[in-house]
Design a protein around this nucleic acid. Structure first.
Length: 635
RNA sequence: GCCUCGAUGGCUUAGGGGUAUAGCGCGUCCUUGGUAAGGACGAGGUCGCGGGUUCAAAUCCCGCUCGAGGCUCCA
């Protein structure tokens, strides 16, 4: 905090004009005057935010000491930003200024000039040796447990309005069956819908009965997919080559699917100006916490979705009704959300995650609803191809009462599409920017639910970002905007796949990733060194990710390791294969624990089999050396 | 962010006021082996970080970092 203290015959001010950060004030506060006063010009700085109370008490101490020296009883607390190039947030500044005013007012005649206004002022400096002083104040580090009430109030003020709204929004819970009946969720008979029961328990009663780590956390490390990175912030992971390959394939797949429905891929910045007027309002309507960073004088925040970039782009575009529905997509690597520390778990909930974010500008609600329907079906298909089937997730549909009353048949049809009961959350009034949304929620091995795909109908942001399209009469109109993440977060898809396989293992099955996502699709194991040439030849005949276990180990051990890596096809070659020109293939998908499904075939036959299995899905080559003997270990 | 629990070689771990186990992995050598771990030897640790108590701390106390569970929350 910077202070400039001036002992004056008088100080008077008059507000002229408010700035965007102006505090609201009463009429009487608009002018002020003090005689024989110490005027304290104050610039509250960034560092003061870490310990607001400490900053206040230090400043008060300084001011009191000067007041006693100049022997006056009147103090004017005057916000003066120009004393510093490293200002605090306006909210913190107001808290500090008020705090100083309050602390001094018991003992002195104190006035405070309002914050955030252009003010005219007159001051008459006495000119004696002590009449002009300046002070710099740096507060001590805030002590952890003794967070001051004052700091807490500053922190609370930056919580978005949407987060606050969420805690007061009254929800009505129902289960909608495909026949169109709306049941009360509390009394619904979940027989035959165990997974939905778990999901509903999770959503409504917030039931938790877990005391162990989710199985995917161990798997993501053991399979060398991803790991914690202690050198970063919590929830920011490192991805090993296998993890990067899987992510890359998933990202490419989702982008291809959005491209098929006409979405244009774009790229937008990761960070935005927190004080941009439009963004500021949007921040207030989105229930997420942001990472904020300081850059010179600007306060920036890291995006938590691609909405900003795309909406700002839409705002500047010239859009005709002929262009609608207009779709743009970005694979956000990353989206950042500063989730509370205790909320972070493995790949399930992160602070930096990769999410496809597609927005569709629609001419009106009718077109929006028809697009919503199409995207609902696209999401089902995308998750299915990724390996998460309709049976693996539960549907939640959330809307306002008005929207439901006007679109009952449409909503019922969504339940019909998945042909099973779905969870309904209804609100009396619209708390959020959307009138309708659905999510597909994966229920994991520990009965925890988390959202994957989602589509929302947004009726607020066209207005906020001033996005227009020109209709056939030449008039400007506001589109209805759909937000869609076809797969949900890519990391969360991996979490889902791993959890699903953990459950499968628990039930006595053999776990594996879908073939198109398996880092090694075929592992060739030569029985002895003399079979290496043949092993190489076989690997060259196969059109997929093939590696060769050329290490000096027994066949038994190599087979075991291939199994631990979930390799879908394990090929063993020895004398008889060399002689016959065949390969001996263990097919993981058809195996049971201790009962491998083995088949003698030619490399060409295996090729045919594999290509039909991965048809239409993206492909990339091996992410590690072909020879296992030269591969490093990551874990 | 709050509450509870935890952190010992690359990984999994035993132990616990007197600087410490074992298995896997890694390296060297032997073994050329037909479907879930062949054998021998060897290297590798200021016991998460910072303070305190003590003659002595990896061990007890405090703080921090990271992780797990709960509250809360979501893609």
């Amino acid at each position: 905090m910077q202070l400039l203290l001036i002992h004056s015959d008088y100080i008077e001010y008059e507000v002229k004009k408010s700035t965007p950060v102006a505090e609201e004030i009463e009429e009487s506060f608009k002018t002020g005057r003090l005689e024989d006063a110490l005027t304290v010009f104050i610039a509250v700085e960034k560092v003061d935010e870490s310990n607001v109370e400490g900053a206040i008490s230090k400043a008060v101490e300084e001011i009191k000491s000067v007041v006693s020296q100049v022997k006056t009883n009147s103090i004017m607390v005057y916000p003066y930003a120009h004393l510093s190039s490293n200002l605090s947030s306006p909210k913190a500044a107001i808290a500090v200024l008020k705090g100083i005013e309050d602390a001094l007012s018991g003992e002195f005649n104190v006035k405070r000039a309002p914050f955030g206004w252009y003010k005219a002022f007159k001051i008459s400096c006495k000119g004696h040796p002590l009449s002009e002083l300046s002070r710099s104040i740096v507060p001590d580090e805030a002590s952890g447990s003794e967070t001051s009430a004052c700091l807490a109030s500053v922190k609370e003020e930056v919580v978005s309005e949407a987060l606050k709204a969420e805690s007061t929004a009254k929800s009505y819970w129902h289960v909608l069956t495909p026949d169109g009946t709306l049941h009360d969720a509390a009394s619904f008979d979940f027989t035959g819908h165990e997974n939905l029961r778990k999901f509903v328990d999770y959503e409504i009663s917030k039931k938790r009965a877990v005391e162990k780590a989710p199985p995917h956390v161990e798997l993501m490390r053991r399979l060398e997919i991803a790991d914690y990175e202690p050198g970063s912030d919590s929830g920011n992971m490192r991805y090993y080559p296998k993890g990067r390959l899987i992510k890359s394939l998933l990202e490419n797949y989702v982008l291809e699917e959005t491209s098929k429905v006409g979405a244009m891929e774009v790229e937008t910045p990761l960070m935005y100006d927190m004080n941009h007027p439009t963004l500021k309002k949007y921040l207030d309507r989105f229930p997420a916490r942001q990472y904020s960073i300081e850059s010179d004088k600007r306060q920036l925040f890291l995006r938590f979705a691609a909405c900003f970039g795309q909406f700002l782009m839409n705002h500047d575009m010239t859009i005709s009704y002929k262009n609608l529905p207009l779709k743009m997509v970005e694979m956000t690597r990353y989206s950042f959300r500063k989730e509370q520390r205790g909320e972070l778990v493995g790949l399930r909930r992160l602070r930096a995650f990769t999410m496809p974010d597609m927005h569709s500008l629609c001419a009106d609600m009718e077109q929006a609803i028809s697009q919503f329907d199409a995207q609902y079906n696209m999401c089902i298909d995308v998750l299915d191809k990724i390996g998460i089937k309709v049976d693996d997730f539960e549907v939640a549909i959330r809307f306002t009462r008005d929207f439901y009353n006007e679109n009952r048949d449409f909503i019922t049809n969504l339940a019909k599409t998945v042909n099973k009961p779905v969870l309904i959350e209804m609100w009396d009034t619209r708390f959020f920017y959307f009138v309708l949304k659905f999510e597909f929620n994966f229920v994991d091995a520990l009965e925890k639910a988390s959202a994957l795909s989602t589509v929302q109908i947004d009726v607020e942001n066209a207005e906020r970002y001033d996005i227009n399209y020109i209709d056939s009469n030449g008039g400007a109109n506001k589109p209805v905007i759909l937000h869609c993440s076809p797969s949900g977060a890519i990391e969360r898809c991996i979490y889902g796949l791993l959890e699903k396989e953990a459950m499968k293992t628990e039930a006595g099955g053999v776990p594996m990733l879908p073939l198109w996502l398996s880092p090694t699709q075929v592992r060739v194991i030569p029985i002895a060194e003399k079979h290496m040439d043949y092993a190489l030849k076989v690997s060259e005949l196969l059109n997929c990710r093939v590696d060769i276990d050329d290490r000096d180990d027994t066949v038994g051990k190599k087979v075991r390791e291939a199994g631990r890596e979930w390799v879908p096809y394990v090929v063993v070659v020895g004398d008889s294969e060399v002689e016959n020109g065949t390969i001996n293939v263990t097919i993981r998908a058809e195996s049971q624990p201790n009962k491998p499904a083995k088949l003698e075939m030619t490399p060409a036959e295996l090729n045919t089999r594999i290509s039909s299995e991965v048809e239409g899905m993206p492909y990339k080559g091996l992410c590690l050396a072909k020879m296992l003997s030269v591969r490093p270990k990551f874990i």
